[in-house]
Write a protein that binds this DNA or RNA. Structure first.
Lengths: 203, 203
DNA sequence: GTCTATATCATGATAGAC
DNA sequence: GTCTATCATGATATAGAC
């Protein structure tokens, strides 16, 4: 990193990340970002001419955080079960540190899928996923796991990992959990997901 | 229903539902709702004095749609497996008809959990969920299913049902699916989820 | 680079004619 | 009930002094 972490630009980016992640593009206010960065609106516009340009800076990092980790693990030359366990562990670690991230990204992508594709999508994602399909199909053919649609398996795994962070307040209400109890549940969750998938796949 | 479906109020509510579900509270514009209802802003404010009051009308229906179905099924006196299968079938049917609903509700609840609790939560939800816990524990004790934390099981089931509707554009990109292929995947999904859970739980 | 002041514009909301 | 016209506010963005 050649930038000073306490540089004005860095303060702006940190503040903007916080506000955009929490409130989304529509709910975010340039004034609030300026306040949180401890500068005034004029200076904020000096660094980022428009709200859009500031948003793009935040969003591109967010989308990268969301996809690159999975992408890297999918590319590793390790057995399927280890691959899935690694995704579960590392993705849940990342989400525990950035719990507002998935809601933010999924929302903004939904609001403007085309912009998302043209500006932010890595063209070699589908081939990487195709490799996942092949490795599942191979294990099925070898009788190591029960027959299953690899796409459904992948969606189920991702769903079980991400959803609790999006549905948190609802889950807490339904199950009458305070914050500490919810944290504990999340902590235990990676073990649950691994075992759940393993059991579902056993022949 | 004693109301005329083509009454002005009904046209407003339909338009508002569409706009709020799609864009959320912050992104929704009274002008767009008026346009979609084919009236002008003045008349819109005559029926609903503030944006907030109109939002509340839409949100209270949305939250009810999200929770009442599960609630009703959980109250039925049927075996656990049937209960879960019924939730999967009926919830996926409902979401297929209202695909923007979960993102909308989860987002707004997240933005203001307290308001959600005080205004919209049915106080007897936690007891209903406690009954689900008991029925899972019972089946575990009888050796009919593998030992499992009922809360994790419930979260996993709900995650697998709801997430695809929230993560749709991302899933389509990663898997390179067009709209028709995605619809087909969703159609097959209920079978997948039922079998996946059944397999995971078999002793 | 940083600040204050201001322009510009969009949006929610109201007033009043019909 | 329905419309047009208008207000008041607040948000993005710019201009210009230091």
């Amino acid at each position: 990193m050649k930038e000073n972490d306490n540089s004005t630009e860095q303060k702006i980016l940190s503040a903007a990340e916080e506000v955009f992640h929490e409130k989304g593009y529509d709910g975010a206010r340039m004034q609030e970002i300026a306040d949180k960065a401890d500068i005034n609106k004029g200076l904020l516009h000096y660094y980022f001419k428009t709200k859009d340009s500031l948003f793009e800076a935040i969003f591109s990092v967010a989308i990268k955080t969301m996809v690159s980790k999975i992408q890297n693990i999918l590319l590793m030359e390790i057995p399927l079960e280890q691959k899935m366990e690694k995704i579960i562990d590392e993705y849940m670690d990342m989400l525990a540190r950035n719990s507002a991230l998935p809601r933010f990204v999924l929302n903004e992508v939904n609001k403007n899928p085309d912009n998302f594709i043209t500006k932010h999508v890595n063209k070699n994602i589908p081939p990487i996923f195709a490799a996942f399909i092949r490795s599942v199909d191979k294990e099925v053919a070898e009788g190591k796991i029960k027959p299953i649609d690899p796409r459904q398996l992948f969606i189920s795994m991702i769903s079980m990992i991400i959803f609790p962070f999006i549905g948190r307040p609802m889950i807490q209400i339904i199950m009458a959990l305070d914050n500490k109890e919810f944290q504990q549940l999340i902590k235990e969750r990676r073990t649950h997901i691994k075992l759940f998938i393993k059991n579902a796949l056993r022949p």
